[in-house]
Design a binder for these strands. Structure first.
Lengths: 233, 233
DNA sequence: CACTCACTTTGCGCGAGCGCAAATTCTCTG
DNA sequence: CAGAGAATTTGCGCTCGCGCAAAGTGAGTG
């Protein structure tokens, strides 16, 4: 196995505040792995033997209910940690992670977490900061689901995706990975039909441009208006 | 200020795995505080100067949207940590905590968290385990909101409350603190009207018994059926 | 290059649950 | 113990968004 170079992870948020030699020590027990598009990286309920950092690509995190319903918990972007069940005292992954596109990840054995987080406190702090913002984001979603209409929820979801993974193009900002109406529906608690109708309407208004598994926001500002407007309960 | 005794916190989940003398060291910088019913313990957006453990009572954690909408994030029971923004790298509380009944809490200055969690790794591990289950619970709520009808959501919410804070009485299991239809509505994303209608119906079926700010589950099993049944999207 | 399958669009009807309103009941306060 | 206010119940109409159905449109594959 070729030795991984510190430059791979230098500058990534989880490793902020670590010196070069520390980066190397952190990297030493890590393995680099590739996953093809739509291949699972880990499965819900499986034992959490590894935790991960995404080097390249996008990962979809999905939770499935006992009744077989799927909900997209979040998308992971480059440079984020994921699968950190261990850091939260869990022995199994609470959700399934699937490569949304071809991905490159780093994987550490979960058993090393206690040692790594003690030896490199910044790593622990960075990770728990991420956990904090995910917790807050989850609560935000609960609130959106409680208080907003479908139109606003979809608008908010798109804006969030654009903020996290937007890529500028000639026609606006494009979501950087393949995403279907069904996916958006699973993120917002709507049906793909309703999402499709909304997107068509917005396309007509010139707010978005979308094709098969592709969404571009041409007028983010007007979309923000959609996200905020309308009376609430 | 009277010195606090280790027995106060011995056996509480956050302090599991600490020795008696360690408990005393942890307790040394803590202050004990009382809060009257309906008084805020901390406010959303305020700087997180303290983190807390609830010794007695029940605390309601509420998040308010910019538009003034309120959503109940969770209830805290005896022996739980809360207000741990600091441990997640946040400087402000993301929500407001209100004493649902008269409460006794322990408060530590946030600035001590790094030192305490390093000196007593078990404390850190216990806390992050709690964070992990809260994150998972938040996702569970997102999923419920996405996939369930109001009736099931209310049933699930009641069952969760009963599990966390149930107190056995002659007529069933009672939720141990005052809770209004409005509160239940804010937990489930419904209106108090719909909650009221549901509870009336269930009362007629002999599943619950409820009065002003009081809810008793007389037939948890039948309520579980309500929570699970019904076709889903 | 055609075929197939996945994804998307669109129409139509219906029902859960909200919005609004008003009446009722319980609890606390003075 | 009476009055006031908070909490709860209940009715009614309406709308949003789902359920179901079917047709249309790409994009990848043999």
């Amino acid at each position: 196995m070729p030795k991984l170079d510190a430059s791979l992870i230098a500058g990534l948020p989880p490793f902020e505040g670590l010196e070069k030699d520390e980066l190397e020590q952190v990297l030493a027990p890590a393995r680099s792995l590739r996953f093809e598009r739509e291949k699972p990286i880990f499965e819900q309920e499986a034992e959490a033997h590894f935790f991960f950092v995404l080097l390249d690509g996008h990962v979809r995190v999905v939770r499935t209910t006992p009744e077989g319903q799927q909900v997209i918990v979040r998308y992971i972007s480059e440079g984020e940690v994921f699968g950190i069940a261990t850091a939260l005292g869990r022995t199994a992954y609470p959700a399934t992670a699937i490569a949304a596109v071809d991905c490159v990840v780093l994987a550490w054995p979960s058993a090393l977490w206690p040692e790594l987080s003690t030896r490199f406190p910044a790593l622990g702090a960075n990770t728990y900061r991420t956990v904090g913002s995910r917790l807050q984001e989850a609560h935000t979603r609960v609130i959106e689901m409680s208080t907003e209409q479908v139109e606003q929820r979809v608008a908010h979801a798109l804006l969030r995706l654009v903020r996290q993974t937007g890529r500028k193009t000639g026609e606006g900002i494009e979501i950087d990975f393949p995403i279907t109406r069904q996916d958006i529906a699973e993120m917002t608690g709507a049906t793909l039909h309703t999402v499709s109708r909304l997107m068509s309407a917005w396309e007509g208004e010139g707010i978005v441009k979308s094709g098969r598994k592709r969404v571009t926001i041409s007028d983010p500002h007007r979309l923000m208006l959609k996200a905020e407007s309308r009376e609430q309960r």
